[in-house]
Design a protein around this nucleic acid. Sequence first.
DNA 1: ATGCCTGAAGGGTTCAGA
Length: 290
Amino acid sequence: MGSVRIATWNVNSAKQRVPRLLPWLDERRPDVVCFQETKLADDAFLDLLGNELSGRGYAVAVHGEATWNGVAILSRVGMDDVVKGLDGAPGFPHPESRAVSATCAGIRFVSVYVPNGRAPGSEHYEYKLAWLASLRATVAASPEATVVCGDMNIAPTDDDVFDPDAYIGQTHVTRPERHALAELQALGLRDVVRDRWPNERVFTYWDYRAGMFHQDLGMRIDLVLAGAPVADRVRAAWVDRHARKGTGASDHAPVIVDLDEAPDGDIGPVVPPPSRPVVKRGAKKLPQAP
DNA sequence: ATGCCTGAAGGGTTCAGA
């Protein structure tokens, strides 16, 4: 298998995103794409996008429901062993469409939309932690060959939010959530965007309100977590901020990761991307109501 | 004013999102 471009994007409604989503596929031409928050039942997703995607050479795995949640994987480098959901995952109270897995180009992909958690200590927060435990148990079967892509709804560190003080007492930054993420990564999964840009200000989500994107007041909660054999092949890893601009954008930007050819191929020495200056982190306060 | 936008469902308003 040659070089592979993988991407993950919380589209915040596939139906609303069609005018942005199809041009984005044509512009970035990813080989494997994980979507979250499709907000469509499987038949509705395929009715809406099936022909457009198959025309672009993509096989599709969907696991959705009307109104909320919904995940998908697109691949034009093969798709086998599709599994919807996670074994033993808790519901709220019923199971929700928050994970789908497939093997593409010899890599096990899991597209995840982790529960939000709403408020620390709430039932939804406990659900989030239990769901993360079931994700870890699923990945633990073969972490080396796995890439977990998606909206983790956790900022791994204080460097992943625009102002840590603004998030005190909020979900996404609490110790139990970060611990659950660390336990998942302890299986051997590497955060390939942070590994590539250890000192940069990198966000993937910006609230729609109050010009948060324009001021770059966001969070990094959409992650690509890769086992070592895949992480070692990363040539580029970046956030496609262009997709967050303009009208009709999702509140999340895609994350794009390019992998070099697998070691059993032969494309010669790897050239690292040029280094960029470190950007000083902002310490702006959350805009307040008048 | 934990809802300054956005999306969805269902109905002329509410809930959820992070």
